[in-house]
């Protein structure tokens, strides 16, 4: 039975297209005076965040509230989690409170999987980022944004044959992995660009191309996604200096000038201006970074609706 959204690898093309189509309808809600639908009335969604996050938590909270669900926010700081309570005891507490869905972010890769398959909770589990593993709703909102800009106007928008370049700290990026898998499912061609030290072991087995040369790759791209250098996850020297990193792997005005006219620039946030992206690029017409945030709410609404709205979920991984 399909119950959880833990990885974009669990999504078939039909699943992914259903989520994107549902999100497209829900996106219209943002333009209405009453931004609320009754679909999840009486359901409880718990945001369980073991790692700091502002935009993802707020985005999930807005999504659940617009669907009329009750939202409980459970952050590690200031809760019993900081007193040493285990994931299991936290899960049992949530189960006792009657949570219908748990949106979990955790520093350890695989924590949402553990939560979903341990038998501790009956809720639907949505992965909101686990360690350096996956962040499926971010990948879905990125794909949604790409479809809106690049998907054409046919009856069924698609990313078939579109070239997406993902640049930067792939090693520590759950966004890159989720995007690589999902975009491949949707028919796009993904190229990862990073210094050799920031590409993960085993990247050969991913459905992507890799390159160390940003200038050679971006003129053909339809979308360029810049990743943040995750200093907080680094325990050594991955590149000589920040300045050298920016020079070789940052997106500045000069590189932006080599892009095709229709190419969009994306960033999952939070941005470090001056590091992986310069301010003039981030604020340019090509940048869809603010739109990604708006689309995030619609995509998360779609995921929550499809998992919780009916008698059984319509998308997601196998139990």
């Amino acid at each position: 039975m399909k119950r959880h959204l833990l990885s974009t690898a669990d999504l078939s093309r039909d699943d992914a297209e259903l989520i994107l189509a549902t999100a497209a309808e829900l996106r219209e809600l943002a333009d209405r005076p009453i931004k609320k639908l009754p679909a999840l009335r009486g359901r409880t969604v718990v945001n369980l965040f073991f790692e700091d996050s502002t935009r993802t938590r707020i985005s999930f909270e807005a999504a659940a509230k617009r669907l009329s669900a009750d939202v409980i926010n459970f952050a590690a700081k200031g809760s019993s989690l900081s007193k040493g309570e285990s994931l299991k005891d936290t899960a049992l507490t949530l189960e006792a409170m009657g949570a219908d869905a748990v949106v979990v972010r955790h520093g350890a890769s695989g924590a949402p999987h553990r939560l979903a398959h341990s038998g501790w909770v009956r809720s639907n589990v949505v992965n909101a980022g686990d360690g350096t593993h996956e962040h499926p709703t971010q990948a879905l909102l990125d794909a949604f944004t790409m479809v809106r800009h690049l998907g054409g106007s046919g009856a069924k928008p698609s990313l078939d044959g579109r070239r997406v370049v993902i640049v930067g700290d792939v090693l520590h990026s759950r966004v890159a992995r989720s995007n690589a898998l999902l975009l491949n499912t949707l028919g796009a061609e993904v190229t990862l660009v990073a210094p050799p030290t920031l590409l993960p072991v085993g990247v050969e087995s991913w459905p992507v191309e890799t390159s160390y040369d940003l200038d050679a790759v971006i003129p053909k791209a339809d979308a360029v996604m810049m990743l943040r250098v995750q200093r907080e996850r680094m325990s050594g020297g991955f590149f000589p200096t920040a300045r050298e990193y920016s020079r070789r792997y940052g997106l500045d005005g000069r590189r932006m000038a080599t892009l095709q006219d229709h190419t969009i620039v994306m960033h999952p946030g939070p941005m470090v201006r001056g590091m992986e992206i310069t301010a003039d690029v981030a604020d340019s017409d090509r940048s869809v970074i603010v739109e990604q945030v708006t689309n995030g709410v619609a995509v998360r609404m779609a995921v929550l609706y499809l998992l919780l709205g009916g008698s059984e979920p319509a998308v997601g991984g196998e139990e």
Partner: peptide, 21 residues
Amino acid sequence: LDVTMYRDDLRMKPARALLPT
């Protein structure tokens, strides 16, 4: 006008795809 999310039997069937509003 799509009424899917306002149906009283929404929870009795698997979640349904939305239609255009």
